[in-house]
Amino acid sequence: MGELFAIFISASLVNNFVLAYFVGLCPFFGVSRQVSTAVRMGGAVTAVMLLTSLAVSFLEAFLLPPVPFLRLISYIVVIASLVQILEMAVKKLSPVLFRELGIFLPLITTNCAILYLGLFQYARGYDFLQGIFFALGAGAGFTLALVLMASIRQGSELASVPAIARDMGFALIVAGSLSLAFMGFSGLFSS
């Protein structure tokens, strides 16, 4: 149990996907203008991460050992199909949620955080249960970073930012400061 907890904390805080590994930057800058949309995007990404982790465990256990060179291709195909299936399921089960998530779902296919999660899970040799906790931690960390970023951008909407630092320049400096703050977690675990 302790080890699973360590995996969760490590994936969400110490090795935050966005702020320490630089994956999933597109939604991090693109969908971080409002806190409410940031929360929804975070939820959608976490759900896809969980499914991806399960799929990767399955692929590595049954299909990929004889054909390792197909790893990348099969991962990306599986992720794209999963997102499509999830989109259809959400549309059928909860039209309200579907309308709220809107365009975010299909965009997750090209989110590098998802593919990175699969590759990382394989490289670390996580088993089924460890993979689930890793995906949950990564999703939580992604959501946390997105919500923090959105809160700062929303809060500074009326601030008088110099003309040269409008929009992306400002967002990048804020992201750098956030990343600096998250480096403080690096002493949390020795491993």
Binding site: L19, Y21, F22, G169, L172, I173, A175, G176, S179, L180
Partner: peptide, 9 residues
């Protein structure tokens, strides 16, 4: 990592 954000910024 923070240096990457700052540099591009």
């Amino acid at each position: 990592p923070p240096g990457g954000f700052f540099t591009l910024g």
